[in-house]
Amino acid sequence: MDFLRPATWAEALAAKAADPTAVPIQGGTDVMVEINFDVRRPPALLDLTAIGELGDWELTADGLLRVGAGVPYARIITELGDRLPGLAQASRTVGSPQIRNRGTVGGNLGAASPAGDAHPPLLACDAVIEAESAARGTRMIPATGFYLGVKRNALEPDELIRAVHLRPATGPQYFSKVGTRNAMVIAVCSFALALHPGERRLGAAVGSAAPTPLRARAAEEFAAREFDWSGATALDPALLARFGELAAEAASPIDDVRGTAAYRRHAIAVLARRTLTWAWNDYRGKAAA
C-alpha cells in the first residue's frame, strides 16, 4: 500500500488525479478502522493532515462559514459552537474525546456512513460541500445531493472535499440521538433540526435509519405550512405529534444488531418531537423577548 503525503492542496489534487483509487485520510477514525478490519485495502492512502489550510475555517464574503475538511470535531465544538449549534451538538456525541480530537466532518462526509453523526445537522442546515479536482476545479454539492447510498457519496474519483459551507444559525438548532449508551456507540438513530424563522420554515433530517442520511421533507413542508411562525403561540400537541409521525415516515429503517426497524421509527418520532419542543421553546422565548 502506498502512503502519499502531499504538502499542499495542489499536490493533493494532483495526487488524487494521478491515482483516483487513493483513499484520503484525515483523523483516520473511519479509514483505519476499515483497514484494520480488512473491510477495505486501498492501493494507496492520501494523507491530508499536512495541508494546513484544511484545518482553517473562515467567514466568507457572502456570510457563510467555510469550514475546512480537516477541522476536527473538538474545534467545531469550541470555536463554532455558537454559530453552528446543531453541528456542534452532533460533534459532542461523536466517539470519545480522543476521537473528537482526530475525527473531522470532512472524514464523516468522505465515509458517508448512514450512521455518521454530522450528516443530519449538515442536511438540516442546508450545508453545501465544496469539492475540488485538479482537472475541473471547484464544484459545490448541496448536502441533500451528496449521499447516494450506503457509504457512497457524490464525489467523482478525482475529487477531494475541500470544505463545508454553512450559514450561521438563523434560529434554534438541535441534534439528538439514541444509543445503548451516551458515547462510544454507533447511533441507533438520530435526528437534527434547524429553525429558520425568517424564512418561516425549518430543516429536519434523519440519521442511521435509512441507507443514507436524509431530509424529512414531508415534515419540513408540514412545519412550513402549519406552524404559527410569528412565534406567538406554543405548538399544538397535535401538530407536534403529526410532525413526529412525518419524520418517522421519512425513514426506511432495518432490523439490525443495534435495534429493530419498529423501534427506530418510534424513536425518530420521539426525537423529532423532542428537538422541535426544545427549538420552539427557544424560538418563542426569543420572539417574546
Binding site: 478490519f37 445503548t180 449508551r181 454507533i186 444488531v257
Partner: peptide
C-alpha cells in the same frame, strides 16, 4: 459471531 470487535461488542466504560 457477528460483532467481534469492541466497536460492536460494547463493554461498560467509566461513563457508564
Amino acid at each position: 459471531f457477528l460483532n467481534c470487535d469492541l466497536a460492536q461488542y460494547h463493554i461498560a466504560a467509566h461513563a457508564d
